[in-house]
Design a protein around this nucleic acid. Structure first.
Lengths: 287, 287
DNA sequence: TCTTGGCTTCCGTTCAGTGGAAGGCCCCGG
DNA sequence: CCGGGGCCTTCCACTGAACGGAAGCCAAGA
C-alpha cells in the first residue's frame, strides 16, 4: 500500500486524474481546498493543476469559486462506446418498450464488479428507482446485474462470488451457493428475475443483449464450427422494473427478448459501417 | 501561433488532454499511431501517456488495439452540471412535451459561440434531425441557438455577429443587420422561430429557460430593486423541431413557455438544497 | 482589532517526463 | 524467400517542467 500510494499519484497525469476523481455524485462542486484535500494533493499543486484543467475546460469554475466538471469533459465522455454506440443503438427499442409498458426501462453494462447504468427511461408514472444513468449498483442485487453476471466470464463470476456481498434488502441472495445456482438458472432460462432484492416493493426482469462476433468479419458465416470459444460475455443487459404487486412480470420476457435481439443485431450491423455524418464539431481551442 | 503552439502542449497535463481531444465523433476509436499523429505528439510520448490514461480507465483499449474513450471518463462527464442538474431537472418536462407533440424536443446551452445540445428526445415519428446530444451547431441557425443568443451578454452577441457566419441553407440569416434585428425581435417576443435556416424542411420554435438569481440566497426577496444588473443570460433554451408544412408552429409557444418556466423554477429550488441520496458509487481504485 | 480559512503567487530544487533510437511483429508485394 | 513499411513496445541518458513550502492577500467572523 505504501508502495502503491507511492506509485499512484507520482505522475503528473495521475495527479491530474486524481483531481477529476475527487468529484462524485455527492460532491459535484468543490472549492479549491476541498479539491486538494480530497485528491490528497498540496494546495499549491492542486491550484496549478486545477487551473490547467480549467483552461482546457475539463473543469469549470463557477462564480462561487467552486470547481465543477466542465462541459468539455462531458462532451468527451459522450464519445465513449457505451454512449455513442450502445446507447445510441438501444434507445429506440427502449422507447418502444417504455411506450408499451410505461415502466422503468434500464440498459446496463458490467464494469468490473458493478452494474453500470447506461440509460434509463422512466416517466412520472413509473416506480421511483435508485438507479441513475452513470451510476453503479451491485451485480447480484439487480435484474440487469444478474443477467450480466450470469453471462460473464467464469473467472469474473468466481471473483465476484468470492467476495463479501452487500445486502440491500432481506431478499438479496448473498450466499455463494444459492447465488451461483440462481445464476445458472438465469443463464439457462435466458432471463433474470429479481424480487425486491435491491429495493423493497420492486421487481425486475432483465435479459442479456448478446455480444456479436467480436471481429468485424464474422458476418453471415456459420459461427466458427459447432465447437469453440466459450460464448462471449453479453454486451449489455436490458431490464424493466415494476412494482412487486404487478401481475406476472414474466409476461415481460418475450418483448424484452425481442428488443434485446434487435439491439444485438443492430450493434453488429453498425460495427461494420464506417462513420456517420460528421458536422460542425468541437471547434474552439482552449486558452 | 508559434508562441501558442509552444505554450499549449508543453505541460504534461496539456499533452494528456491533447490525447483526449484527439477523439471526436468522426474518430471515436484510434490506433496509437493515429492518436500520436492527431495529438501531434511523438509516438513514444503518446504511448506512455495513453498507457497511463488507460490504467486510469480514462481511455480503454479494445481487442483490436484501438483506443476509445473509457467508461470512467463517461461517468465523470455525467457529473457536469449540464447533465447532472440541467438535464436532470428538465427531462420530465421535456417528456411531457414529447408525449403531447411526438416531435423532436431539444434542450441546449450556449457554449462559447456554439449551441451545445444537452438533451434531445425524439421518436420514430419525429423529423430526423442533425442535432446530437453533446453535439454543436451554430447559434444563429437553430431555434434554441437564436433563443440563447438573443438573451446572451451584449459583448457575446457583438463578438458573434462580428464573425463570418456559416450558411447551412439559403434561408439562414447571416447579414449582421438582419440577424441583429431578428435577435431583438426574439428577445422582445420571448421566443425564437426558425424556418429552414438549418435544415430544409424543418422549422423550429424555442424559448429561453431563465437563469435564476445566481446566488443561493436571492430567494423570495424582491429582485434587487427595479433597477439593476442586466437580465442574466438564460440558463438554457428549450425547443421543438417540426416539419415545415405543419400548421402554425407558433401554437407550440405557450406549452414551451410553461415548461421553461417550470424548469427555471425547479432549477432555482434545487440550487439550494444539499445533495441527493448517495449510493454505492465509484468504488474501484485504478491500477 | 485579531484570527481563521481560503486563495494566489513566487521561486530554487530536483526528479519525473522526454523522445530518439533500436528491436519485434505482421502483412504485403516482388 | 526476402525486403520494406506499417505498427507497437521498450530502453535510457539528459534536462527543463513540475513541485510545494512559504509568504502574502483578502474576506468573514469573533
Amino acid at each position: 500500500m505504501a508502495a502503491d500510494a507511492e506509485r499512484e499519484g507520482r505522475s503528473v497525469t495521475g495527479r491530474a486524474l486524481r483531481l477529476l476523481a475527487a468529484f462524485d455524485v455527492a460532491h459535484p462542486a468543490l472549492t479549491l481546498s476541498e479539491l486538494a484535500r480530497r485528491a490528497e494533493l498540496p494546495l499549491a499543486t492542486a491550484h496549478r493543476l486545477a487551473g490547467e484543467l480549467e483552461s482546457w475546460r475539463a473543469l469549470e469554475r463557477g462564480s462561487d469559486g467552486r470547481f465543477r466538471v466542465g462541459n468539455r469533459l462531458w462532451e468527451m465522455g459522450l464519445l465513449a462506446p457505451v454512449s455513442s454506440r450502445l446507447r445510441q443503438v438501444a434507445l429506440p427499442y427502449m422507447q418502444d418498450l417504455y411506450e408499451a409498458t410505461r415502466e422503468n426501462i434500464h440498459l446496463a453494462v458490467r464494469d468490473g464488479f458493478d452494474t453500470l447504468y447506461v440509460e434509463k427511461l422512466c416517466g412520472h408514472r413509473s416506480v421511483p428507482i435508485v438507479s441513475r444513468v452513470g451510476g453503479r449498483l451491485p451485480l447480484h442485487a439487480t435484474g440487469v446485474g444478474k443477467a450480466l453476471l450470469a453471462g460473464a466470464d467464469p473467472a469474473v463470476r468466481e471473483g465476484y462470488l468470492g467476495r463479501t456481498l452487500p445486502r440491500p434488502t432481506g431478499f438479496t441472495l448473498v450466499e455463494r451457493g444459492r447465488l451461483d445456482r440462481e445464476l445458472r438458472a438465469v443463464a439457462r432460462r435466458g432471463y433474470a428475475l429479481t424480487r425486491e432484492e435491491m429495493t423493497l416493493g420492486s421487481v425486475s426482469v432483465a435479459v442479456p443483449v448478446a455480444q456479436v462476433g467480436s471481429g468485424p468479419d464474422t458476418q453471415g458465416a456459420a459461427r466458427r464450427d459447432g465447437t469453440g470459444d466459450p460464448p462471449p460475455e453479453p454486451a449489455a443487459a436490458l431490464g424493466i422494473v415494476v412494482r412487486s404487486h404487478r401481475a406476472d412480470p414474466a409476461r415481460l420476457v418475450p418483448p424484452l427478448k425481442t428488443a434485446a435481439q434487435a439491439i444485438a443485431r443492430r450493434l453488429e450491423e453498425t460495427a461494420r459501417d464506417p462513420a456517420p455524418g460528421l458536422e460542425h464539431e468541437l471547434p474552439p481551442l482552449p486558452r
